[in-house]
Simulated scan of single mutants.
Amino acid sequence: MAGVQTAVALREQGFTGPVTLIGAEPHQPYDRPPLSKAILLGKAEDSAFEIDFEDLGIELRLGLDVTGLRAADHEIDTEAGPVAYDTLVVATGAQPVVLPGTEGVPGVHLLRTLDDAVRLGPVLERRHSVVVVG
């Protein structure tokens, strides 16, 4: 969300230079809070921002992991090769808190991404008792 808001704000404030938004997930940028609401309730299939990135001249590079930063060279490293920049905004979001002892335990689910919500939907349909930590 912070990356999208930064890119859009740049355009709204008249910045005309190139803007590239890189994200590790393959999906269009989306709003995370609706994951636990509309998507899990089956009222929506995604929560993509209704932003015309192409019209704003914002290049989206999705499904691309950034693997390193070479600040002296003004480049970031990605699995697809280096990407040069003049100014870099790092808006990686928060990392989820994983409770000790829960990794790999059947029936314990982490909800952070769109893919997490899609995987969780069928589990919740079975109407087991549910405890939510968060």
Rank of each mutant, 00 (worst) to 15 (best):
E103S: 13
G3N: 00
P122Q: 11
P82F: 10
V83T: 04
G23W: 00
I58V: 14
T113Y: 05
Q28R: 00
D115N: 12
A72G: 10
E54T: 15
V97A: 12
Y85A: 06
D31K: 06
Y85L: 09
T92D: 02
A38Q: 15
G14N: 03
V131T: 14
D52N: 15
G3D: 08
E75Y: 05
E25G: 02
M1T: 09
V8E: 02
V108R: 00
R119F: 04
D65F: 12
L110Y: 00
A44T: 11
F49C: 12
I22A: 03
A38F: 07
T92G: 01
V89H: 05
V4D: 02
V89R: 03
E79A: 12
E103L: 09
G81S: 02
A24S: 05
L64F: 01
D77W: 08
F49R: 14
G23Y: 00
V105F: 04
I51F: 15
L88W: 00
I39F: 12
D73V: 10
A71M: 10
R127I: 02
K37L: 12
L41Q: 15
A2M: 07
L35A: 11
Y85F: 15
A24Y: 06
A94V: 09
I51G: 13
G23N: 07
S36F: 03
T67H: 08
D52H: 13
L64G: 00
G17M: 00
Y85P: 05
R112I: 01
D73S: 14
L41T: 13
G121V: 01
L62F: 07
A48N: 14
R61Q: 11
V8K: 04
L21E: 01
G68Y: 04
L64Y: 06
T92H: 05
E75V: 09
T20C: 03
Q28E: 01
I58T: 11
A2V: 07
Y30E: 09
G107K: 11
G57E: 12
A48K: 12
R119V: 03
G134E: 14
P34H: 11
P106L: 08
G42H: 14
L35Q: 04
R119H: 10
E125T: 11
Q13M: 09
S47F: 07
A24M: 02
L62I: 05
P96Y: 06
R61N: 07
F49D: 14
R127P: 00
